[in-house]
Structures are given as C-alpha cells and as structure tokens.
Design a protein around this nucleic acid. Structure first.
Lengths: 112, 112
DNA sequence: CAGGATCCTGTACGATACTG
DNA sequence: CAGTATCGTACAGGATCCTG
C-alpha cells in the first residue's frame, strides 16, 4: 500500500485547488453562471478583483470554467462551470458542508 | 443569497486545508495511525521532513491530528486522526476520488 | 463593469546539515 | 528515527492606479 497517494495526475489536481480561493470561487459558480462583480458580492468580500480574475483564469485553463464576454456597453462577462467543472460541485459541496458543520470546533481547538 | 459563502468559520476552515500538503497528509492518516517516516513513504516522496512536521503541527493545533511519542530507542512517533479528524475522512475521500477520476482531463485541458 | 499593470510583503516550500 | 536550524527562492495575494 506504499505510495497510494503518489499517483501524479490526482495530486496535481488536488494542488490546483490548494489555494485560498479556488474552492470558494467554484462554490460561487455552483448555482449557475455569475458575473464578475456578482461573484465578489457572492463571496462576501475579502477577494480582490485581481485575484478573482487570476483564479478564474487558472480554473479556465484547466477546463473547469468558461468565460463569456458579451459585446455590450457596459461590458458584461459571465463565468460558468464546464461539464467537467460541474462534476466538482458535489465534492466541493461535501467539503464546504463539513467546514460549516465543524468550523467552530476547529477554530476553538486552534484558540487554545 | 448574497454572501452565502461569507460565513467565517467555514471559510477559515477551508483555508486551513488550502495548501499543498494538508489534504494529502490527512489522506495518509485516514487508514489509521502512521509513523513519521512511513507517512513520507506513503505519500511517495516530494514532501520534506520539515514540511511534513510543519503540516502535522498545524493540523494538530487545529484538533484534527494527535501526536504520540513513545519513549523508546530509536524514537517512535505515531500520528493519528482525532475523532474530529475522522469526520474529515469522508469529504477528503470524495475529493481525492474525484481527482483520481478526472485528473487526466484536467491536465489535458491545461496542456493546450 | 471588467481587468490589466505595478509594486510590495508574507510565507509556503525545498535543500542541506546538525542533534538527541 | 524524528526533529530542528538555517538559508534561499518562488509565488500567492493585497493595495492602488489606469484603461477600453
């Protein structure tokens, strides 16, 4: 059973999500297409527009997110999950549900 | 529905796992107590002893992992999940299963 | 409204060597 | 075997200003 965590694609994919915002952004897209600005409101602040764009671009380049810019004035850009991205909704939902349920306990432990 | 991702304990808890190794280390502990060195083998290399210790310490300080040092020579230290940590096994299993299943597709998309 | 360009800081991570 | 100490680098992420 040695090295059962070593398989490479899986690990690299976990690393893709291993930053401060990827999971949160994907959760924000899980209910349907969202505009750039609305995504910031949805997340509830704390993320800068620059970092949001960077995060979306990386997720896009990995085939999880689509970007659609409407030729209008003012500009309107909508982000959405790809079919592949949709398959991530369930795992992320499980994770965020855990976080909401046990978040208090984790923070309490850290406070000691 | 604005700000449905803003609840604080949940986000901080997600951030706890938002680094390169936390998820992998927890997965390594999910089958039972493991020694420091065995954990490195289990992970399959790539993690230094320093970083492994740092990661374990942080997880320990958040109540997810226990550390038990046996007074022997040579030293033997076993890490295990706390009851709280055990509740994380399922979410992590879901995530890693997804990563193994869709990792190829994600990397293929990134390669273009 | 969306987001690019800059600048700046903290820190996660890695390599190596040393200790009990 | 487990862990610490030290050093160095890379990059994430925040603040601010500017553009179509």
């Amino acid at each position: 059973m040695e090295g059962f965590l070593a398989d490479c694609p899986g690990r690299l994919t976990v690393e893709l999500l291993a930053d401060k915002w990827s999971v949160v952004v994907l959760a924000g897209l899980s209910r349907g297409p969202v505009r750039h600005g609305d995504l910031i409101d949805l997340i509830g602040g704390g993320i800068s527009r620059k970092v949001l764009t960077q995060t979306l671009r990386r997720l896009q380049s990995h085939g999880l997110v689509t970007r659609r810019a409407h030729a209008e004035a003012p500009p309107r850009v909508e982000y959405a999950l790809t079919p592949l991205g949709v398959t991530l909704v369930e795992p992320i939902h499980v994770l965020t549900t855990w976080a909401r349920t046990h978040g208090e306990a984790v923070l309490d432990a850290a406070a000691e």
